[in-house]
Amino acid sequence: MPSRQTTNETLSSTDRRVAALAPGPPVNIATGQAADPGAGEREVTFRLEGVSVRYGEALAVKDVTMDIHHKDITALIGPSGCGKSTLLRCLNRMNDLIPSARVSGRLWYHGEDVYGPKVDPVQVRKLIGMVFQKPNPFPKSIYDNVAFGPRTTGMKGDMDEIVERALRSAALWDEVKDRLKENAYGMSGGQQQRLCIARCIATEPDVILMDEPCSALDPISTARIEDLMHELKEQYTIVIVTHNMQQAARVSDRTAFFTAEVDEATDVRTGVLVEYDRTEKVFSNPGDERTENYVTGRFG
């Protein structure tokens, strides 16, 4: 069971913001058998129970049940088209932006139903930030890119300090401190991606979702972002989708392996969760043959 406090005095700042997501009494979390044997030893950030996603008629992700733990780096791996991005977008309700997407099953975030009727997706996204596959800085100055989130969410405090802190956390400050007023489009791809991470950190989220954040970057930039993830782990819960198995092995604490089952009749590829465990276990002693084939490079 997740250790959700119920007394007001012991609520952390994040918990209070989470509690504000959905007004009303705390939701009773159903006691399901967690997919991961390690559950219970750490606070659970996300609990997925039979989450399925459809695009129109096509089932893209089927029946995923897993717990994502507080201040862990959780990697989602698997062949292309197995629904990793789709599942990731459920966590902060970015799927709401795709009109045909339908999510079913239950998805709890610190005990709150993310898809509950009273939940405002905008509030969810303030707590659960996202970094995209292709760096997508705004066509504004470096400073304004970082300040955008805090300004829109009405964060209190000295904006210069907020920006500096975020850029430092993203290991970007020294490179850009003399050109904060310059357009972000003048930065290299790796710098742009770290700027996107800084932009995300600036709003003080609880969770950072990353969808193949290094796939458009060179190896040196990739290494810098991996180092950065290790540092960010101290403060944030991170869920990363990656194509790169070495990356998953290097950075993550837990790894979830997905694969696509093809429906012969309709030719629809449906993603299923094959195995979810500690990363060392998934890579050294996988419990499923499909996982073993994938991580040893025999498939995918």
Binding site: V122, Q123, R125, L127, F138, F148, T152, R199
Partner: peptide, 15 residues
């Protein structure tokens, strides 16, 4: 204006 800019903004909790 590419949709990646809209998504980036919405993902930061902008309305």
């Amino acid at each position: 204006v590419p949709s990646s800019i809209r998504h980036g903004s919405l993902a930061l909790g902008a309305t």
